[in-house]
């Protein structure tokens, strides 16, 4: 056996290899993609608690100020963080999901804008389908504010989610003294979600092999069968894992061996400073941008 061949083989067998092989088959779903994204994120090493703190603070400041500029700024921060975290490699599926969310928000803000107070003068009035649309200056501005708050929230949460694997999140929760039952559940559900997913995918291919897609009714039945199978499997594994947990001396919580980076002093400081700054900034700029005035010439109001 030649030396090179030995070496090559070694890395294949598993021992010496340094790069983990992807087991593949299951990398087709949102969860897996999100997870792989999180593990390859540039922000993975940032302390999860710090990230969580910053995200939540920015979210709240966006909600508590009346100025539309603040959510605009947080939205920009969110976009920047997301770009940095994912290194501009957003999987198609998740990008579509974001667009979908934005579309829903546009619809929602649109609804808000046409449900103005009837005591105020209308800038637009009429019937859209079965709606009695009545848009006022105030409702128009309010809709824009809410829209920006919402997309700022989405981008911030996504930048957090795309850089923090669930186990790190669970740890952050633990630090915040979220009840143990909830955090343990997060960990277990996360672990088993992948197993169940794998199982379901295999069952669906087994159904395909037996032609379980001929006709819509049969397709539905096959998927139902796979679902039932997965459910039974989940029951089985729950029952078995209880015994195996006992075998491994489980004492009611999952100890953490490798603590992620601890929250150092800059994190709370940065969070608080940025929040205060934004809030004060928001107070002074509450009326600087009036969306109505901006759009009025465009729409001919």
């Amino acid at each position: 056996m030649t030396l090179a061949a030995d070496k090559e083989k070694e890395s294949d067998v598993g021992g010496g290899g340094k790069t983990p092989s992807r087991s593949g088959a299951s990398s087709v779903t949102d969860q897996v993609q999100m997870d792989e994204l999180a593990y390859s994120s540039r922000m993975l090493s940032w302390p999860p608690l710090g990230k969580l703190m910053l995200t939540l603070f920015l979210l709240f400041v966006g909600l508590f100020t009346d100025s539309i500029i603040v959510p605009m700024i947080t939205f920009c921060i969110g976009i920047c963080l997301m770009v940095y975290s994912t290194n501009m490699r957003l999987p198609l599926l998740i990008a579509i999901a974001i667009l979908e969310a934005v579309a829903i928000m546009v619809l929602g803000s649109g609804m808000i804008s046409i449900m103005g107070d009837h005591h105020d003068p209308a800038i637009f009035q009429g019937h859209i389908l079965w709606f009695d649309a009545y848009m006022t200056v105030e409702s128009f501005n309010k809709a824009w504010l809410i829209f920006f708050r919402a997309i700022a929230g989405v981008t911030l949460m996504l930048s957090f989610a795309s850089s923090t694997p669930i186990p790190h999140l669970a740890l952050a929760c633990r630090r915040l003294h979220v009840p143990r039952e909830i955090t343990e559940l997060i960990v277990l559900v996360y672990r088993y979600a992948f197993l169940l997913l794998e199982r379901m995918l295999v069952m669906i291919s087994a159904a395909k092999c037996r032609l379980g897609y001929n006709g819509p009714l049969k397709t539905m039945k096959s998927y139902a069968g796979a679902m039932v199978g997965t459910f039974i499997f989940s029951m089985e594994i729950a029952e078995k894992s209880e015994a195996t947990l006992a075998c491994r001396n489980y004492r009611g919580f999952f100890p953490i061996y490798r603590m992620p980076a601890k929250v150092a002093w800059p994190w709370p400081v940065i969070s608080v400073v940025s929040v205060v700054a934004l809030y004060v900034f928001g107070m002074y700029t509450a009326d600087v941008i009036d969306m109505y005035k901006l759009f009025a010439p465009l729409l001919g109001w």
Binding site: R191, K240, S241, F254, I256, Y257, R258
Partner: peptide
């Protein structure tokens, strides 16, 4: 104890966390 099906006995999400699970307990 090592079970026939490894999925029944691996609870953590990261390799080293799972190996540490028993000793940590």
């Amino acid at each position: 104890m090592v079970l026939q099906n490894p999925d029944e006995q691996l609870f953590s999400t990261i390799v080293e966390e799972d190996i540490a699970f028993g000793p940590m307990n």
